[in-house]
Design a protein around this nucleic acid. Sequence first.
DNA 1: GGGGTGACCCAGT
DNA 2: TACTGGGCCACCC
Length: 104
Amino acid sequence: MGPDEYVEAVLELVERIPPGRVMSYGAVADALAERSGRSSARLVGSIMARHGGGVPWHRVVTSSGRLPPGHEREARARLLAEGTPLRSAGVDMRAASWSPEEGM
DNA sequence: GGGGTGACCCAGT
DNA sequence: TACTGGGCCACCC
């Protein structure tokens, strides 16, 4: 799987995250690990930064639930609007974390 | 080719 | 709780 295909796979997966739920950068990387042959949270982060504009980017947060740096306000507003469980730090990962297997 | 830089993550202190 | 060090990998000088 080439770099471009990997970008497509990441965006595809992010589009499948249901409203009110989230995935961490690392979880996205892990979910595509078998198919792509690599698992790098940093890579997913940079892909979201560069190509995330057309997908629900606010549903991808850090593993601790913190919102994407530089977009905290916008992300929080969208998450709040779709009923995502929030805490002071950001997202309540125990309640909001979603995985692909769960959605089939 | 070599080195710096991220929308990261985890274990250790 | 907060900080650090190492690992990570595509990009861009």
